[in-house]
Design a protein around this nucleic acid. Structure first.
Lengths: 236, 236
DNA sequence: TTTTGTAATTGACCGGCGTCAATTTTTCCG
DNA sequence: CGGAAAAATTGACGCCGGTCAATTACAAAA
């Protein structure tokens, strides 16, 4: 029989109900989820977990922006992923029963929903469809990494930077007149760790981008002309 | 009940029985697998499937070397993965019911084992442990891509090239005296598509690598000193 | 063998980026 | 406010790699 509207849930506006790996699920698993479910609010800069931490569950970004970063032995680091609202993080260590290979840290005031490891494992083992959807997220991640590898080989750094900024603007910018304005949540170092270049290069790239008229840049304040109302496509 | 030794199987020496995503599996699924199972031998240069082809199953590299490559609109291409014996390919399009995003082509005389799509789907849907192992392969792929992204950002091209060659030598080289010798199955263009550089750069990198004494290079014939089998007394 | 097309190498030139250093701007506390 | 620390920018310089062009090596076909 058709489902009535789902009951209210502590996750608030996260994708737990709408675009979730957990839904639909058996009623027994549903109660397990409700039991193991928590949510937390992070202020900008606050870590969700650290590199080499043991997995504690599966996380879903509900609001804000989470950066996944690996630290290298030489002290440098690489920003491997920006997780936007609706995205799942921590699934690698969850599925493999291994420590996190990255640290997760909020770049904006963020909300994260968690299903504790024990409960998540139970649900996954009793509801194969959840595993299917988790695998689907893995493949999305593979595709994104492939895109990034291709872009690193084929796309000039200036264009790659523009792409990153445009995505951030679209997700977290505020519309003013026919412009998008944003306080960039990433430092120049973050951008450098994302592009695989040095901070000085980021400065020069931003200068050139601004001279091209693509953006107005002032410190961490960014503004870009809003393209004519484009319909956001469902597929990424 | 303890398993007796597994029955013989057309896959020959591939990892179907030893390190396989399919094993262990219910006896009903076992017969499904045997039915949908095929193997094929590819000569160097022969394609296994093409970009945008519909998925026809899950493949396992049994012998040889398979290159996964995406072709770009400008006519260039990127070599996204080298699949060595024991590795699974085609799982992305299989799990997502989508066309292949890469072409798969043998670089050496190779043997590939296939489980046809319909049968593989049936087994996956009735044996969640298979899905778990497929997800594990996905995560391995994610980790490798992360390593590649990090290497592209942090490791000089010369060292990246050395790493690629060493892996190829170890897997497909033949030992002569205390050296490893190999006929490189990749063209300079292939190496360039793997590193994200131009063929001329590959030539210059190889020259420098040879001058360093790391390799002897002559056309596609490579030779490298075999690292001494870990022995405590090193210095004379 | 010779021919012919492809692959590979080499050289010249130049732009982009890493590096080091100096300066300016921003941030954060007192 | 003011002052220190951190972040960001700018300049100078050299190397690496892209690009174009020319040459050489190789491999398949006649």
């Amino acid at each position: 029989m058709p489902n009535p509207s789902p009951p209210p849930h502590p996750c608030g506006n996260c994708s737990f109900y709408t675009d979730s790996i957990w839904q639909p699920v058996s009623s027994g698993a549903m109660s397990t989820l409700s039991r193991g479910f928590t949510r937390q609010d992070l202020s900008a800069g606050q870590p969700l977990y650290h590199q080499d931490d043991d997995n504690r569950g599966v996380y879903c970004v509900s609001k804000g922006l989470i950066a996944l970063r690996t630290h290298h032995m030489d002290g440098s680091s690489t920003l491997l992923r920006l997780a936007y609202p609706g995205e799942i993080i921590g699934f690698r260590s969850f599925l493999e029963f291994r420590p996190h290979r990255t640290e997760a840290r909020a770049l904006l005031t963020s909300r994260v929903c968690t299903v504790a490891q024990r409960d998540a494992q139970q649900v996954v083992q009793t509801n194969p469809s959840v595993l299917t959807r988790l695998a689907s997220r893995c493949i999305t991640e593979i595709d994104r990494n492939h895109d990034r590898i291709i872009a690193a080989a084929k796309t000039p750094n200036k264009l790659r930077l523009v792409g990153i900024l445009q995505r951030l603007m679209t997700a977290h910018g505020t519309q003013i007149d026919n412009h998008l304005r944003m306080h960039l949540p990433l430092s120049r170092t973050d951008l450098a760790d994302l592009l695989g270049v040095q901070t000085e290069t980021v400065s020069r790239l931003l200068k050139r981008i601004q001279q091209d008229g693509t953006f107005q840049v002032s410190g961490r304040e960014f503004q870009m002309p809003l393209p004519p109302p484009t319909r956001p496509a469902a597929t990424g």
